[in-house]
Structure formats: C-alpha cells, structure tokens
C-alpha cells in the first residue's frame, strides 16, 4: 500500500476511532450501565460520574504506559542481559561501560554539554531578550533569533558544517581566519577537545531562541514599578538589569536552564551528522546509537545511565508540580 494513502487512512481511522470510542463509551455509561432515570437516578448519576474520568483518560494513560512507563522498567531489565538477551549477566554491561575509555570520553563530553550549553543559551537568550525588549524592530529581531528552533538538528548540523568547512572559499570560519589573520585552513571539528565546543555551539544556536522567548515574557512580567523605583533610586541600566530584573525572573531562569540541560543530554543528531562521534566528540546518546541494533544489552545500559543523570531534574519537576496542584 502506498504510504501516503496509508497515512491518510490512518488519520481518518485514528480520528474517527477516537471520536467513536469517547462517544460510545459515554453513551454506554449513561444509557446502559447507569441510566439517569428510574428510582436510583441520583445514585446512578453519581456512579457514572465516578467512572467517566477514567473513560476520558484511559487511551492517553494506555499510550503513556506502553511507550514511556513500561520502557523504563523494560530497559532496566534488558540492560542486565547480554548481547543476545539470552544470558543474565547482572551488572556486566555497566562494568564493561565503566572500563571502556570510549564511554568515559562520552560521559565527560556529555557533562561538558550539560554544563556549557544551558549556560551559554541562557546567557545569549537573556541578552537577546533584554536587548530586543525596547527596540522598534525588536519583534523582527526576536523572530530571526528564534528561527533556528524550527530547523532540524540535522539541518542545523549541515548549516554549521558549511560554516566550519576547511576550504576558505567555502567555510566562513576559515575565510575569516585567512582574511583577517592569514592563518591557514583549520578543520575546527578535528581540534582535540575544543571541537566539542564547536558542536555545542550548534545546539546553543538552536536553544537560544527558546530561552529568549521565555525569558523575554518573564522580563515583561516584572512589575514596571520596581524598575521605575530602581531608576529613581539611581540605578544605571546594568544595575537595574542584574540587581532588579534578573533576581525577579530567577525562577524562570531555573526552569529554562533545566529544560535545556535535559535536552542537551538527549540529543544525538548533531554529533551523528557532523563528526559521527569521531575525533573525541562522542556523547552518550550517540554512543548509545553505536550499539543500537547490535547489542541491545549495552545500548539499554547507556540509556539507563542517561536516565539516571536526568533523574534529579525529574524528581524536582514532580515536586514542583505537586506544589502547584495543591
């Protein structure tokens, strides 16, 4: 079957299936199981209203369970078995990982990503939010800085690989090096250690817009009176920014920071499309993909390491959500 046709059929079937499920399950509940009439009308209505939330939420819960909740356990379980999945080897995969220099390399690089990417994105985002706030063309500027968000990581990698190209007639970096400093062509993606930063910058380039949009809304949310009071108290623009505005949007900065941190731990596309993990640029997600389809035991073990790193963020988010609900 032609995939496009299959896609259209799926949309129609999926949507009408959802509608049919929700509609008929409600109907059955209200008309057949607990009809709102007869001597037990109030009791029936109360019972139907106890069951109804579950009708509404069931499909979503089911999908969440199968695709996210169960896999956490499934991966943890699978990581205790060997490549074929036949033999239980306990923590063997983890021991092998710890002994592998590649894994240590990837782990340290990933730590670097998780520190540097959010820091730089938030800094650039804050700068952009503050700068564009008062400008007449601020919204256009924001739009352009935000644009990379729509570009795929693969597309972004390609765009920057072009900038980093060795030929000074192609790559902007080498053209500038040659034109301004007369330095010969450099492959920045092969400079040991520092090449990681050139890759990180691709993600920073993408995430800055996200940080900017949210921080800009937070900056606008600051009561203007506090800023005006600071101006009357004699604060200069920098003091106003760092002593009055930034402290007030600090909670938002934390949210943006953690969101980008989690992102930088999960993204494999950039490394995959630029260096393929060579030249010492491997990170955990791309390292995991090198085992995918070949050694599920090792791959799930790496995934679980990522999960463990993300866990503190997860716990604090859950705590935060529980506070808000109450």
């Amino acid at each position: 079957m032609n995939p496009v046709f299959q896609g259209l059929t799926t949309i129609v079937l999926g949507v009408s299936g959802c509608i049919a499920y929700f509609y008929t399950s409600n109907l059955v509940l209200d008309r057949v199981l607990y009809p709102a009439r007869g001597p037990r009308i109030t009791e029936n209505i109360a019972r139907a209203n106890q069951i109804r939330p579950w009708l509404f939420i069931f499909p979503a819960l089911f999908v969440l369970f199968v695709y996210l909740a169960y896999p956490v356990v499934g991966s943890a379980f699978r990581s205790l078995f060997n490549r074929s999945g036949a033999d239980f080897i306990g923590l063997g995969n983890y021991v092998a990982l710890l002994q592998s220099p590649d894994f240590r390399r990837a782990f340290l690089n990933n730590a670097l990503w998780a520190l540097f990417v959010p820091a730089a994105s938030v800094a650039f985002g804050l700068l952009a939010a503050q700068l564009t706030d008062k400008l007449a063309w601020g919204n256009a500027a924001k739009s352009l800085i935000f644009m990379p968000m729509a570009i795929s990581f693969v597309g972004a990698s390609l765009i920057w690989k072009f900038v980093y190209a060795v030929d000074s007639d192609i790559g902007l970096v080498n053209a500038i090096l040659l034109g301004l400093f007369g330095v010969g062509p450099v492959d920045v993606l092969q400079i040991p250690f520092w090449n990681n930063f050139f890759l990180m910058f691709i993600l920073i380039w993408i995430q800055t817009g996200f940080a900017m949009v949210i921080l800009s809304a937070a900056l606008r949310g600051i009561p203007e009176e506090t800023v005006e009071a600071a101006i009357i108290d004699g604060a200069n623009p920098f003091q106003t920014f760092f002593r009055i505005k930034v402290p007030q949007i600090f909670p938002t900065i934390v949210v943006v920071w953690t969101t980008i941190t989690v992102g930088s731990l999960k993204i494999f596309d950039i490394v995959y499309a630029t260096t393929g993990g060579n030249f010492g640029t491997e990170i955990l997600p791309s390292y995991m993909m090198s085992f995918m389809f070949r050694d599920d035991g090792r791959a799930t073990a790496v995934a679980l390491v990522i999960m463990i790193i993300v866990l503190p963020v997860m716990i604090s988010n859950i705590r935060q959500a529980q506070k808000e609900i109450r």
Binding site: L64, P71, R78, L265, T300, M307, M314, N317
Partner: peptide, 24 residues
Amino acid sequence: GLLIAGIVGLLVVPIQLALVPVLN
C-alpha cells in the same frame, strides 16, 4: 494529583530509554 505528577515526570524521560523495549 498523582497522575498529573506522573505525567510531569514522564516529560523528561529520555526517548533513548524507550527505543529497545518498544521496538522489541
């Protein structure tokens, strides 16, 4: 409340974790 908290938690679960079990 528990379900909402659970969904907030799932929000940050790395997809990497789901690949092998879900494909299987």
